[in-house]
């Protein structure tokens, strides 16, 4: 009998030799990443390293120049459009902006994937939507429009929508950016609880170090198109490279210098005096 990928204990997402460029610049240059099942894997790195691009590559919204991205044993970029859409129904994604449909209410936004992909009755959809909204603490906000929500509430509604179809994995794109401490704490707790309660696989892209390390089971740090460090949050804190320690601890100076490359200050000042 053929064993399923899950039974074999294979990672849910397997990225090998990924190369992707925008214009002349290589965003990824031979990236290898394994995302284990039922865990929270954080992808971290400085701004502009292509963390969001990586999520789009996993979701099949972008096509790599080389390499493969396998999700649940399926090569994402070798699938037909219909197969890709079937796979996406098992994925959820939380966009940085929430990406709620602005002409629909909170209730209708969460009901949207259920109405699109299932033949459930409206009464069943109502019950499911209320349960999903209850899970993110916004059952009472079901009649509000997206324009009436705060940034944190919008992300929680987007999270309820992302789990509407009970996906196998969720990708979070910078979920903590621009959140006040309370909203951030709520989101941190929700991501962990949802992952554990629903046995989800979570990919968390962020550069909010403290919050991410608080809930991540495994961390990949990427820079210059490659994985520069990986391991558990504890391993990263203890034995990482100088660069990783600077990134994790938010040190202003180190391998990434505080000063933009320039001639010596005294030379610059003296040159000004000579003019």
């Amino acid at each position: 009998m053929q064993q399923s990928a899950k039974e074999c204990g294979k990672p849910l997402v397997r990225i090998r030799g990924l190369r992707f460029r925008r214009g002349e610049r290589w965003i990824f240059d031979g990236l290898d990443i394994d995302i284990p099942r039922d865990r929270i894997t954080a992808i971290m790195g400085p701004s502009g390293t292509g963390k969001t691009t990586l999520l789009k590559l996993i979701g099949g919204q972008l096509v790599p120049d080389e390499g493969t991205v396998e999700v649940d044993g399926q090569n994402v970029h070798a699938l037909s459009t219909a197969e890709l859409y079937r796979l996406r129904m098992r994925m959820g994604m939380l966009f940085q902006s929430g990406a709620l449909l602005t002409d629909l209410s909170v209730f209708d936004n969460v009901a949207f994937p259920l109405r699109e992909h299932t033949r459930l009755t409206e009464s069943m959809i109502r019950k499911l939507v209320l349960l999903k909204l209850e899970a993110v603490g916004l059952r009472g906000a079901r009649d509000l429009m997206p324009s009436q929500l705060s940034g944190g509430m919008a992300r929680r509604v987007a999270l309820a929508r992302a789990i509407a179809l009970d996906p196998m994995m969720i990708m979070y794109d910078e979920p903590f950016t621009g959140q006040d401490p309370i909203s951030m704490g709520v989101l941190v707790q929700l991501i962990r609880q949802l992952n554990d309660a629903a046995h989800l696989t979570s990919i968390l892209v962020s550069h909010d170090v403290a919050e991410t390390l608080q809930i991540a089971d495994q961390v990949y740090v990427i820079s210059d198109g490659r994985v520069v460090e990986s391991g558990s949050p504890e391993e990263l804190g203890e034995g990482g490279s100088d660069w990783t320690r600077q990134f994790i601890n938010g040190l202003p100076d180190g391998p990434v210098p505080f000063h933009y490359p320039a001639p010596a200050l005294s030379d610059d000042l003296l040159e000004g005096a000579r003019c």
């Binding site: 979701g59 996406r88 994925m91 902006s97 990406a99 709620l100 449909l101 994937p113 699109e116």
Partner: peptide, 16 residues
């Protein structure tokens, strides 16, 4: 809708 990632969101919800 494109600028606010609503179209990307639809794609990721398997809606063309």
């Amino acid at each position: 809708m494109k600028a606010t990632e609503q179209l990307s969101g639809l794609e990721m919800m398997a809606v063309n």
